[in-house]
Design a protein around this nucleic acid. Structure first.
Lengths: 335, 335
DNA sequence: CTGAAAGCGCTTACAG
DNA sequence: CTGAAAGCGCTTACAG
């Protein structure tokens, strides 16, 4: 049987109220009893029962994290950043995955509600078309921060990369290297981040008076085999792109491997720029030029914003919707 | 304010007891009231308060996962496997990281105890020298399963890779390819898995009557820069290894990149074999030969074992300590 | 088949 | 500075 406050109280012949207050460092308790209580607590290896305390105070000390999957460089590092802030605040996290699946996302939100988390940091799945579940969160008064993959139109903090300028910079870089026919391998079509990166691509082409070629743009699904798409994009020597900007580093790596199999040299025949600046960049050959995407900093920012909402602290309007600017890290794949 | 059982009860003019029983599908409750109750629950968007239920039943429906870090292919995938089984059982997980740090590991164990998790799956940090915290878990009657990185001598289930035979097979493969001077870049010295893989290496050398050369073995720390170690190992042309077996794929990739920088060709001058068979293997060039390490299957097995202990089901002795056999996936780095 | 009552382990307003 | 009492939202043995 676990030790409770009552056990300490009877051992010390004082009331449970006093024990509770001493343990919580209440100002009205004398230093002497505080010392006595904490000594006895240590002796008996007492561990606060968060469940009971949470029920009483209606504060669970937990926050939920809901991401598409934790087996991805970006989200794993983001969780790392979030957890740092969360544990600094004396909270713990419940981490859920949607597996890029809308129904799982709904289920996980329900489960987080049942766990009475005090807030949620969430990144929507690539399969999510409607946002009723977010209204549910609002209906239950559970604060949440939208992270990286945003749902539009909610009066809640958001933390995202500046995907538009990221896409713009990537393509501008390729243009400045003299590339003429720049293709884009996009992300899941439903995601706002896919659209923004694509629009950055378009805007760069327009800015530099490049012709826009529909054949040079394909959106992809996460579980799809991309080899065929890449092959199709580059198979025709007469109308072959000489550069490719991809939605992610993972896609860029797939593209590089496939292009090499097709006998095309990177970057001489085709330059490639990814997005994410992940650890893959320095492993693939040639090393991948990529747009930065700062998961740890973004995760920390999201957690800090969430705690501000939980603690009902004022958030200056300019901090409510954070956009992390990116830059292009130039490596061999576009040199 | 969140909806409670009481709200449903008053709305339906029945007692909270009946509502609770109906919601939990108690056999004594008539089908009619069950239907009424669940309809009203849906209407009011009732969500069970797990915290309250847990306090009453002394079952939190949660299990803790404690790993060195989630930003690693292996552990992220392992968590994936664990979570699948956990949610199939109607439980949720609290995931903690020790950051390869003993003190964090202690803190996290305490926090899991306070969260009243019903069980823990844990992989010890490379910094952990004593196992008092595991005795604490036992003292509190919290079942736990040791995962991948085992602490010896506990009467509790373990799930690990067969690191010894994995190391043996890797080196045997190199020997059969005709390699004569096989080096080993080991993992953190305190970890049993480092020792086992190293012992597999030694045993293969012995089996094939190879001379054992102390200069060819170095153990590494996770946060160390390995370039200098690799350089030192391979700088002397007169006594240069012609093959390298590494503790992990990450180390193997670092080695390949460094060897290439040193002007050595892989595999012609130096063959390399990693451990983990991770996604890096098909990205690095040449593609990396590696020993399989099945995180998802191992995670699932660990979770299944844990639930057997929680439910006090009998575990046949041969299932108590699971070792996952591995095989060598041969790729270009050792061809 | 249903209800009243007790209790899980805390915290805290109230009283002294 | 300390204690008795109530209550957070459930579940369940007991009674009918």
């Amino acid at each position: 049987m676990a030790i409770t406050i009552k056990d300490i109280a009877t051992a010390l012949k004082i009331s449970p109220s006093t024990v509770s207050r001493a343990l919580n460092d209440h100002p009205n308790i004398s230093e002497d009893t505080k010392k006595l209580v904490s000594a006895k607590a240590k002796e008996l290896k007492y561990q606060t029962n968060f469940i009971a305390a949470g029920l009483r105070t209606k504060r669970s000390n937990s926050i939920g994290i809901l991401v598409p999957h934790i087996t991805s460089n970006f989200f794993a590092s983001a969780i790392d950043g979030i957890q740092k802030i969360v544990s600094d605040n004396g909270y713990y996290t419940i981490i859920c995955q949607s597996n890029e699946n809308y129904h799982d996302e709904l289920d996980q939100i329900k489960s987080l509600l049942s766990c009475k988390v005090e807030g949620v940091i969430l990144s929507i799945s690539s399969d999510t078309k409607d946002f009723e579940h977010l209204e549910t969160l609002q209906a239950y008064d559970v604060p949440f921060v939208l992270f990286d993959r945003i749902a539009p139109g909610f009066d809640t903090p958001t933390v995202e990369a500046n995907d538009f300028t990221g896409g713009f910079q990537a393509v501008e870089h390729l243009i400045k290297r003299g590339r003429k026919k720049i293709a884009h391998l996009g992300g899941p079509g439903l995601l706002g981040i896919s659209k923004s990166r694509y629009e950055g691509y378009l805007e760069a082409l327009r800015t530099y008076d490049y012709e826009i070629n529909e054949d040079f743009v394909v959106f992809t699904d996460p579980d799809q085999k991309h080899d065929a798409i890449i092959e199709k994009m580059f198979e025709n020597p007469k109308n072959r792109p000489d550069a490719l900007f991809t939605f992610s580093d993972e896609l860029a790596v797939e593209a590089i491997l496939k292009l090499k199999k097709m006998g095309l040299t990177v970057p001489r025949e085709v330059s490639v720029v990814g997005f994410g600046n992940s650890n893959l960049c320095e492993i693939v050959e040639p090393n991948l030029t990529s747009v930065t995407h700062e998961p740890i900093e973004m995760g920390e920012a999201a957690a800090e914003l969430l705690f501000k909402v939980i603690q009902k602290r004022h958030i200056p309007p300019h901090q409510l919707h954070m956009k992390f600017d990116s830059r292009v890290v130039i490596r061999d794949s576009s040199r």
